[in-house]
Amino acid sequence: EVTIKANLIFANGSTQTAEFKGTFEKATSEAYAYADTLKKDNGEYTVDVADKGYTLNAKFAG
């Protein structure tokens, strides 16, 4: 089991951190699915991958 950390950075400057656990593939998929649920209210996002894929920095356009 691994933990994927998602740093969510919103256009207004606020941030949120979420963690997803499971296999690498499952946890990564859940992190992206969570970011997708936030698109409606926060706009499209881009992701910078860090820490060999164990940290995802998602920046929302607003």
Score class of each variant (00 low, 15 high):
E1V: 14
E1P: 10
E1F: 14
E1S: 11
E1T: 12
T3V: 13
I4E: 00
A6Y: 03
N7L: 10
L8Q: 00
L8C: 10
L8K: 00
L8N: 02
I9E: 08
I9G: 03
I9A: 07
A11L: 08
N12Y: 05
G13N: 06
G13K: 06
S14F: 13
T15V: 15
T15F: 12
T15P: 04
T15W: 10
T17G: 06
A18R: 15
A18P: 03
A18I: 15
A18F: 15
F20S: 02
F20A: 02
F20Q: 02
F20R: 01
K21C: 10
K21A: 07
T23F: 06
F24I: 08
F24E: 04
F24V: 07
E25R: 07
K26N: 12
A27C: 05
A27L: 00
A27Y: 00
T28N: 06
T28C: 12
T28P: 00
S29N: 12
S29M: 14
E30W: 05
E30L: 13
A31G: 03
A31D: 02
Y32I: 12
Y32S: 03
A33G: 07
A35C: 15
D36R: 00
D36Y: 00
T37S: 15
T37K: 13
T37W: 11
T37L: 13
K39V: 15
K39I: 14
K39M: 11
K40E: 11
K40H: 11
D41I: 12
D41R: 10
N42T: 03
N42W: 15
N42P: 00
N42E: 12
E44F: 09
Y45M: 04
Y45S: 01
Y45R: 03
Y45K: 01
V47D: 01
V47P: 03
D48L: 11
D48A: 10
D48I: 14
V49C: 08
A50T: 13
G53T: 00
Y54K: 08
T55F: 05
T55C: 07
T55V: 10
T55D: 05
L56C: 05
L56N: 04
N57I: 14
N57V: 11
A58M: 15
A58D: 04
A58Q: 05
K59T: 14
K59H: 14
K59P: 03
F60V: 01
F60N: 03
A61C: 12
G62K: 08
